[in-house]
């Protein structure tokens, strides 16, 4: 429901703003371009998503996920208690977190969504699902390759010199985000 309000609000804001600034002429073509951009983006992601779903399936089969899962178990079980009893949920969750750490965002998404689907109880987000989403919206990647590529494109000689700053920032934002989720979960339940 929140997304409905956000979406409607954005469209209304655009109309009011375009009317005020006299940019109404571009608005309808922008809407069509945006819709097309959605398709373009999906098509340009298609290869990566399919490839990493395939590799993810392969990892599940060859035992990498199992090994990672065991390493991450203490942390996982704290954040997602139902992963303690559900081996394949624990596998998807740890694979999602590992892929995020490696900066393979497209690889993380399919596994994260599989995990999310196993956490669903009806159409209401559970506490665990909220924590999973917060963890995925707070980027926890070790090597931000895209940003480094942009930086070297502008002639930066040490594109990775921002790494310590990125690590501290990511760790604090993910940590405090999950903490906020815990607090909000307690408050909302009353």
């Amino acid at each position: 429901m929140v997304m409905s309000w956000i979406w409607t609000g954005i469209v209304l804001l655009s109309i009011l703003c375009a009317a005020a600034t006299g940019k109404g002429g571009q608005l309808s073509s922008a809407a069509m371009q945006g819709a097309q951009a959605g398709v373009t983006l999906a098509v340009s992601m298609a290869g990566a998503i399919c490839l990493w779903s395939g590799v993810g399936k392969l990892m599940a089969v060859c035992g990498i996920t199992g090994a990672l899962s065991r390493r991450m178990r203490p942390l996982l079980v704290r954040l997602f208690p139902s992963a303690a009893a559900d081996v394949s949920l624990a596998g998807d969750l740890s694979a999602n977190i590992c892929a995020n750490l490696l900066g393979l965002g497209n690889a993380a998404t399919p596994m994260g969504i599989r995990a999310a689907k196993r956490m669903v109880r009806g159409d209401i987000a559970t506490d665990e699902l909220c924590r999973l989403v917060v963890l995925n919206t707070a980027s926890i990647q070790l090597i931000p390759t895209n940003v480094a590529a942009v930086r070297s494109a502008f002639g930066c000689t040490a594109p990775f010199d921002i790494l310590p700053a990125v690590w501290i920032t990511s760790a604090l934002s993910a940590g405090l985000g999950v903490m906020a989720a815990y607090l909000l979960g307690k408050v909302r339940r009353g």
Partner: peptide
Amino acid sequence: AAGIRKTRYAIPAA
């Protein structure tokens, strides 16, 4: 993908 309609506190926390 998970078919969630009530997102509860996920958006403010994120």
